[in-house]
Amino acid sequence: MTTAGSTLTQEETDLHLGTVAAKPYQVVVWNDPVNLMSYVAWVFRSYFGHSKAKAKKLMLQVHHEGRAVVATGPREKAERDVTAMHGYGLQATIEEAE
């Protein structure tokens, strides 16, 4: 592939590879008046594997502040998480991590 005249192509490829670094996304769960605190805490523990203390902290953050970031990661994983939260009936959205 490499020939004497291919310098430019090589550079373009390198530049392209340089931009691939994936942007992280975050999963936000929003407060609502229907989902029970015990239920939300259970979902956070069983689905994300959060500890008892962390699940409780996030659950209370959702309750008091209206929202909480419950997971951060590559876009595909965040999409799966949001769909799973919808499966549990939680209000969840995906957004770019700050």
């Binding site: 259970w42 523990r45 069983s46 594997g49 959060h50 500890s51 008892k52 203390a53 962390k54």
Partner: peptide, 10 residues
């Protein structure tokens, strides 16, 4: 739900 090493790790 077991709360094993979770609290230490988080």
């Amino acid at each position: 739900i077991p709360d094993a090493e979770g609290d230490v790790a988080d």
